[in-house]
Design a binder for these strands. Sequence first.
DNA 1: TGCCAATATGGCGATATGGCCATTAAAGCA
DNA 2: TGCTTTAATGGCCATATCGCCATATTGGCA
Lengths: 108, 108
Amino acid sequence: MAIKAIDLRRYEARAKIAKAMAHPSRLLMLDLLQKKSHTVTELTAIVGADQSTVSKHLSILRDVGLVDVRREGAMSYYQLKCACLDGFFSCIETVLMADLACRRDALK
Amino acid sequence: MAIKAIDLRRYEARAKIAKAMAHPSRLLMLDLLQKKSHTVTELTAIVGADQSTVSKHLSILRDVGLVDVRREGAMSYYQLKCACLDGFFSCIETVLMADLACRRDALK
DNA sequence: TGCCAATATGGCGATATGGCCATTAAAGCA
DNA sequence: TGCTTTAATGGCCATATCGCCATATTGGCA
């Protein structure tokens, strides 16, 4: 039985989005932005990293269409562009909890 | 108003899981494993990469608890460990579609 | 035992990522 | 016009990731 190689292109675009989310600081920011929009300064204080670092993280989220910017004077208000993070987080959460339970069992 | 830095540790475990998913080949494999379990040889043929590469990808998915192995003789059957990928994929899909629509608008 | 098929692992080079510093750009205000 | 605040970008280095090759390792079978 000949197994055909599948075209990976379909998954590349999706992986790019997943990759943008796959960083602790960016996950935190996405989580924060679920509640309300924030400025770079606010996010910088909360994340506790360099301002330039946070700005770059935000541009990564922006590039894949996860967040949006609204400029007001000198400040940039970042806001979530999709209301779909619940599914994402709950999936991650499920995996995490299952894994913790598994490790707990292994200690018995 | 003092903004408190948030402990990132909570997000590190989650980012690790997201990171494991953030690769085209691994996304493809997760998608395949949603339907049924597969051997490394099968996945290697479908993904179209080196066997060692696929094996390493699978160990990454295994390390974070996304998949499971069942050894049968000389073959390893990999299977999905969680039934929660729908939420993940539909989130990604939403972002992807919104972004495509956005780009389409930009061309007008 | 000897051989082959199926997996897993070590190593290595190329490329990507992450974080900071320094700098630039733009807005608000005295 | 200067000074300050806010944000974005370039540069640089350390580290991580990816993919292949080569090499174990394990199971099935003659």
